[in-house]
Simulated scan of single mutants.
Amino acid sequence: MDVYYFYSYSTAGWMALQALPLIASPTMIVALLSPEVREASTLEVYFSRMLGFTLITVGVLQVLLTGSVPLSSRLTEAGGTTTDSDDPKAPYALPTLTITALFHAAYAFYTYAMWTQTDVFSFGLGTMGSGVLFCVGLWCILFASSDGRISRKTGADKRTSGFPFKNKEADKRKGKKGL
């Protein structure tokens, strides 16, 4: 499994993990967060469950819009999913990847601020989880957003340059004299 699929499925899983307590037991969440023990109001239950459903929806959209789940029966020549803009399976992959990475960055920043203010361990876990997913998402944006120009003969990337060093062996094969 490559990093791109790992990020896509991990984001969906992380959001589902956060959504389950919000949907299943909003009264317990309110009891844990409020200073006095009380029953959750109808509005608090509504907002808790709607946030949970929203997190699940964003997680599913992340998987679908990045092309991790092929929505057509036609496969590419290489058999893999890329984030190229001309790939028909994932035309929204890079924007979706960017938005979810920014979500993880904002969430990690917020949970870190709450962690330093309250010293609650679960905020530290949220900071680590979203921070790791932000770093993986940033890596995917920077390095997994194109499949490169790989030579079939040598396996090297064709976009590389000889600056500041010359490739004397390649120049010999081409018939050029190396400097």
Rank of each mutant, 00 (worst) to 15 (best):
A16D: 04
A16I: 12
A16V: 10
A16M: 10
Q18L: 08
Q18C: 11
A19Y: 12
A19D: 08
L20F: 10
P21C: 03
L22P: 00
L22H: 04
A24H: 00
S25Y: 01
P26K: 02
P26I: 15
M28R: 01
A31E: 04
L33I: 06
S34A: 07
S34V: 07
S34F: 05
P35V: 14
P35I: 15
E36W: 07
E36S: 14
V37R: 13
R38C: 03
E39D: 15
E39V: 11
A40L: 02
A40I: 04
A40V: 12
L43I: 10
L43M: 07
E44W: 02
E44M: 03
V45I: 13
Y46S: 00
F47W: 14
S48E: 02
S48P: 01
S48F: 06
M50N: 06
L51C: 10
F53R: 01
T54V: 10
I56G: 02
V58L: 13
G59D: 10
G59R: 03
G59F: 11
G59W: 11
V60A: 03
V60P: 00
L61M: 13
Q62Y: 07
V63T: 12
L65I: 03
T66R: 10
T66S: 14
G67W: 01
G67H: 03
V69G: 01
V69F: 05
S72Q: 09
S72D: 14
S73G: 03
L75W: 13
T76M: 06
E77D: 12
A78Q: 05
G79C: 08
G79H: 06
G80C: 14
T81L: 00
T81P: 04
D84W: 04
S85K: 02
D87V: 04
P88K: 09
P88W: 08
K89F: 15
K89P: 01
K89D: 13
Y92W: 10
A93E: 07
A93Y: 04
L94N: 05
L94H: 04
L94R: 05
P95D: 11
L97M: 09
T98V: 12
I99S: 15
I99N: 10
T100H: 06
T100E: 07
T100S: 13
F103D: 09
A105P: 06
A106Y: 09
A106W: 10
A106R: 06
A106G: 13
Y107W: 13
Y107M: 08
Y107I: 11
F109V: 08
Y110V: 09
T111A: 12
Y112G: 01
Y112V: 07
A113P: 00
A113T: 01
M114E: 07
M114T: 11
M114H: 10
Q117I: 02
Q117G: 11
Q117P: 00
Q117C: 12
T118Y: 12
D119N: 07
D119R: 05
V120M: 07
V120K: 07
S122K: 02
F123C: 04
F123M: 12
F123G: 03
